[in-house]
């Protein structure tokens, strides 16, 4: 690809637009997807391999995320809540994308509302998931 002529102006890019929820969830979709594809996938595989390898390997895996009492430590909470929040955001916005694929929801107002709804869904579901896990 030819190098860009730096004397020529760039077309208006991210910094010139007023940020809206649709732009936020668009880049969040990519960020959460990439995050789950790297950190999430690696942890899922480590978990499965540790259970397959036996009690000692599983203990090593578990020690990284839990205190001696068996409760989650800081790493466990940050990664656990982070990954579930990523999952619910990616899931909600993915469903929104499927609707947009059939041509629905492109009007400015409804598009904005649906983008906001994915964030609300992600927050509510993450809180509900961890509350249920905590009080169970």
């Amino acid at each position: 690809m030819a190098a860009r002529n730096t004397a020529r102006p760039l077309s208006p890019h991210l910094q010139i637009w007023k940020w809206g929820p649709n732009m936020l969830v668009s880049i969040l979709h990519r960020a959460t997807g990439t995050g789950m594809a790297t950190v999430g996938a690696a942890l899922l595989v480590w978990f499965l391999a540790a259970v397959a390898a036996g009690p000692e390997s599983y203990a090593t895996f578990r020690d990284v995320f839990t205190l001696d009492s068996g409760r989650l430590n800081v790493v466990g909470y940050v990664i656990g809540i982070g990954l579930t929040a990523c999952l619910f955001q990616h899931m909600a916005n993915g469903i929104r994308h499927l609707f947009m694929d059939v041509g629905a929801g492109f009007e400015l107002k409804s598009n904005k509302r649906q983008a906001q709804a994915t964030i609300v869904f992600a927050v509510v579901m993450t809180v509900a998931f961890w509350l249920y896990l905590g009080i169970k």
């Binding site: 595989v45 499965l48 391999a49 259970v51 397959a52 390898a53």
Partner: peptide, 10 residues
């Protein structure tokens, strides 16, 4: 491959 092998091993 590691994930599927691990599940099958279990």
């Amino acid at each position: 491959a590691v994930a599927i092998f691990s599940i099958l091993k279990i």
